[in-house]
Computed example of a mutant assay.
Amino acid sequence: MSLTPSRDVFITCAVTGSGDSTGRSDKVPVSPRAIADSCIEAAEEGAAIVHIHVRDPETGKPSRDPALYEKVAEHIAASGKDMVINFTAGMGGDLTLGPSDAPLPPNDAATDMISAEKRLEHVANVRPEICTLDCGTMNFGEGDYIMTNTPAMLKDMAGRIQKLGVRPEVEVFDTGHLVLAKWLHAQGLLDDPVMVQLCMGIPWGAPNDLPTLMSLVANMPDDWIFSAFSIGRDQLPYVAAAVLAGGNIRVGLEDNIWLKKGVLASNGDLTREAVKTAEGMACNILGPNEVRAKLKLEKRW
Rank of each mutant, 00 (worst) to 15 (best):
V291T: 07
F10R: 09
G268L: 02
A42H: 00
C283N: 06
M1E: 12
K163T: 11
E279K: 14
V251G: 05
P193R: 00
T132P: 02
G17L: 05
R233P: 10
M138S: 12
K182M: 12
I257F: 04
P99F: 02
A242P: 05
D94C: 04
L253C: 09
V291H: 11
G60K: 00
K299Q: 10
M138R: 07
K260C: 07
P62M: 04
V126M: 15
G232K: 11
N139A: 03
T212N: 08
V179G: 14
K260H: 08
V196H: 08
V239Q: 08
A152S: 15
I285A: 02
T59Q: 09
H75R: 08
G92L: 13
D94S: 12
M281W: 05
M1K: 14
S21F: 06
S18K: 05
K27W: 09
P29R: 04
I49W: 14
L286M: 12
D223N: 10
P57K: 03
T175C: 14
E58P: 00
R33W: 04
D101I: 02
P193G: 01
D192G: 04
P5Y: 04
L184Y: 05
E74M: 13
C135T: 09
L189S: 00
K163E: 15
G141L: 07
A109C: 06
Y145N: 07
G247T: 03
L264K: 15
K61M: 11
I257E: 08
G205M: 02
L297C: 03
G93L: 09
E41P: 00
G80A: 07
I161S: 06
K296S: 12
K71G: 13
V251D: 10
N289A: 15
T212Y: 05
I35G: 14
A206D: 08
E169P: 12
G205A: 03
E74W: 05
H51A: 13
A240S: 10
G17Y: 07
R233V: 12
A282W: 09
A110S: 09
Q162M: 15
I225P: 01
K155L: 01
L95P: 01
T88R: 08
C39V: 06
T16E: 11
S63M: 03
W204A: 08
P211C: 08
L97A: 04
A48E: 08
N284M: 11
R64S: 12
